[in-house]
Amino acid sequence: GSPGIQSFLPPGWEMRIAPNGRPFFIDHNTKTTTWEDPRLK
């Protein structure tokens, strides 16, 4: 199987799917959430 997208996120980050189907990202380091992919910064 191919590695999940989770493995490509920075340490402490998690990806979830919102009720509307959009992915969002949780930064457990700062306890914040964002719509922006942290890998694109």
Score class of each variant (00 low, 15 high):
Gly1Val: 13
Gly1Tyr: 11
Gly1Lys: 11
Ser2Lys: 13
Ser2Asn: 13
Ser2Gly: 13
Ser2Trp: 08
Ser2Glu: 13
Ser2Gln: 14
Pro3Met: 12
Pro3Arg: 08
Gly4Cys: 15
Gly4Leu: 09
Ile5Asp: 13
Gln6Pro: 13
Gln6Lys: 10
Gln6His: 12
Ser7Glu: 14
Ser7Arg: 12
Ser7Tyr: 12
Phe8Gly: 15
Phe8Asp: 15
Phe8His: 14
Leu9Pro: 01
Leu9Asn: 01
Leu9Asp: 01
Leu9Tyr: 02
Leu9Val: 02
Pro10Val: 05
Pro10Glu: 04
Pro10Asn: 03
Pro10Arg: 08
Pro10Trp: 07
Pro11Thr: 10
Pro11Gln: 11
Pro11Phe: 13
Pro11Met: 11
Pro11Asp: 12
Gly12Asp: 02
Gly12Tyr: 04
Trp13Ala: 00
Trp13Lys: 00
Glu14Ala: 06
Glu14Tyr: 05
Glu14Ile: 07
Met15Phe: 06
Met15Asn: 00
Arg16Leu: 08
Arg16Tyr: 08
Ile17Pro: 02
Ile17Arg: 10
Ile17Glu: 04
Ile17Phe: 12
Ala18Asp: 10
Ala18Asn: 06
Ala18Gly: 10
Ala18Glu: 05
Pro19Glu: 08
Pro19Tyr: 09
Pro19Thr: 09
Pro19Gly: 08
Pro19Phe: 10
Pro19His: 09
Pro19Met: 10
Asn20His: 05
Asn20Phe: 04
Asn20Ala: 02
Asn20Ile: 02
Asn20Cys: 14
Asn20Ser: 10
Gly21Ile: 00
Gly21Val: 00
Gly21Met: 04
Gly21Ser: 03
Arg22Glu: 08
Arg22Met: 10
Arg22Asn: 06
Arg22Thr: 09
Arg22Val: 09
Arg22Phe: 08
Arg22Ala: 07
Arg22Ile: 10
Arg22Tyr: 08
Pro23Arg: 12
Pro23Leu: 10
Phe24Met: 07
Phe24Thr: 03
Phe24Ala: 02
Phe24Ser: 02
Phe24Asp: 00
Phe24Pro: 00
Phe25Ser: 00
Phe25Asp: 00
Phe25Ala: 00
Ile26Glu: 02
Ile26Met: 06
Ile26Gly: 00
Ile26Leu: 07
Ile26Phe: 10
Asp27Pro: 00
Asp27Arg: 02
Asp27Lys: 02
His28Phe: 08
His28Ile: 08
His28Val: 07
His28Lys: 07
Asn29His: 07
Asn29Ser: 08
Asn29Leu: 10
Asn29Ile: 10
Thr30Ile: 02
Thr30Ala: 07
Thr30Ser: 09
Thr30Trp: 03
Thr30Tyr: 05
Thr30Asn: 10
Thr30Glu: 06
Lys31Gln: 13
Lys31Val: 05
Thr32Val: 09
Thr32Gln: 10
Thr33Ala: 12
Thr33Gly: 07
Thr33His: 09
Thr33Phe: 14
Thr33Glu: 07
Thr34Cys: 07
Thr34Pro: 00
Thr34Val: 05
Thr34Gly: 03
Thr34Leu: 03
Trp35Ser: 04
Trp35His: 04
Trp35Ile: 04
Trp35Pro: 02
Asp37Gln: 06
Asp37Lys: 06
Asp37Thr: 04
Asp37Ala: 06
Asp37Tyr: 07
Pro38Tyr: 01
Pro38Leu: 01
Arg39Met: 06
Arg39Gly: 06
Arg39Asp: 02
Leu40Ala: 11
Leu40Tyr: 11
Lys41Ser: 15
Lys41Tyr: 15
Lys41Ala: 15
Lys41Gly: 15
